[in-house]
């Protein structure tokens, strides 16, 4: 499904964000990150490098981890997007948030939304507990953190895996 492209410069799109349906018209060059932050006010998704490397802008699109800085809003027409603000709706993720707090999974918190979404993607598909720790690490290669050295994130994941 998708909106009708009446105006190719300003296409209409329909998408679900954190369970809520939105129908919006956006400039064709609006990035998904811009749609979420500026149009929908969901500022939990951060913008860092804008070249797909740092992962601060990570969201799930139909369950797939996505750099919202490298994705056009029109591209996700018809899709279902989950951002950090939507994670609270999943009780099975509560332990992950707690573990991040208690294990030192963040310091400045700028990368945290992206880290949580990337890990939540695995948990919601029930893959986390069956993956090797190397595979989990590989999954997070693209979520940089400049503050924690990753050890606290690793401990938080280890707790969430149990």
């Amino acid at each position: 499904m998708g909106g009708v492209d009446v105006d190719p410069a300003w296409p209409s799109i329909a998408l679900t964000v954190n369970g809520r349906r939105h129908e919006v018209s956006v400039p064709a060059d609006r990035r998904l990150a811009g749609l979420l932050r500026d149009d929908l006010g969901l500022t939990g998704t951060k913008l860092g490098c804008e070249v797909g490397v740092c992962g601060t802008c990570t969201v799930l699109v139909d369950g797939l981890p996505t750099s919202s800085c490298l994705t056009l809003a029109v591209q996700v027409d018809g899709a279902s997007v989950l951002t950090v603000e939507g994670l609270a709706a999943f009780p099975e993720l509560a332990e992950l948030g707690r573990a991040f707090v208690e294990e030192g999974g963040f310091q400045c918190g700028f990368c945290t939304s992206g880290q949580l979404v990337a890990i939540a993607g695995l948990m919601l598909e029930q893959r986390l507990s069956s993956m090797t720790s190397e595979a989990v690490t590989e999954h997070l290669h693209g979520n940089l953190c400049r503050c924690t050295g990753y050890y606290g994130i690793q401990r938080a994941i280890d707790r969430a895996r149990r």
Binding site: L42, T43, V84, E85, G97, R98, F106, T112, S113
Partner: peptide, 9 residues
């Protein structure tokens, strides 16, 4: 604590 892990910070 919630502010940090909910995207509200």
């Amino acid at each position: 604590d919630q502010e940090w892990v909910s995207g509200r910070r």
